[in-house]
């Protein structure tokens, strides 16, 4: 599924209408989409709905003072080995600049994972293995072993 800027704004408007996100979150998310589109040199981004639903909700979690746990260490190790990790870091720095604050480490980690997978899909590379199931907790540990 391909996402264009217009589809992103429709999605964000729906979330904003229901009070799930605020205006600043909308603007930051739109800017990140434009930056990512510039980086991958595409007007439309494949399978972007996951990142661009996750990102505004992550920013709202920060607004609401909610915390999430960091992903499992094995995923973090794999993430750092990705050829796309430097670009993912650049994108997270871009978000922090727009947000005018540092993001919590757990949120940054999940954003790195999302961006790496999105860059793999749009620019080639291997998806992070088992990342979808590798959130923290006993079940994630069981699957890992």
């Amino acid at each position: 599924m391909i996402m264009r800027f217009q589809e992103l704004t429709t999605r964000l408007e729906l979330l904003q209408e229901q009070g799930l996100i605020n205006e600043k979150v909308c603007r930051v998310t739109e800017s990140v989409f434009e930056e990512l589109a510039r980086l991958v040199k595409k007007d439309s981004i494949e399978q972007a709905e996951m990142v661009f639903t996750h990102l505004p909700l992550a920013l709202m979690r920060i607004v609401n003072g909610e915390n999430i746990d960091r992903p499992d260490p094995f995923i973090l190790e794999e993430m750092k080995r990705s050829e796309h990790f430097p670009v993912a870091e650049t994108l997270v720095h871009f978000i922090e600049k727009l947000w005018e604050k540092s993001l919590p480490q757990g949120e940054k980690d999940f954003l790195y994972i999302h961006f790496i997978n999105l860059l793999n899909i749009n620019q080639g590379g291997d998806e992070l293995e088992d990342c979808h199931r590798g959130t923290s907790g006993e079940e994630g540990d069981r699957r890992k072993n």
Partner: peptide, 13 residues
């Protein structure tokens, strides 16, 4: 990944 984010956001909306 987080249960209450992308899993349900559009349903809540």
């Amino acid at each position: 990944h987080t249960g209450g984010g992308g899993a349900l956001a559009m349903a809540i909306a």
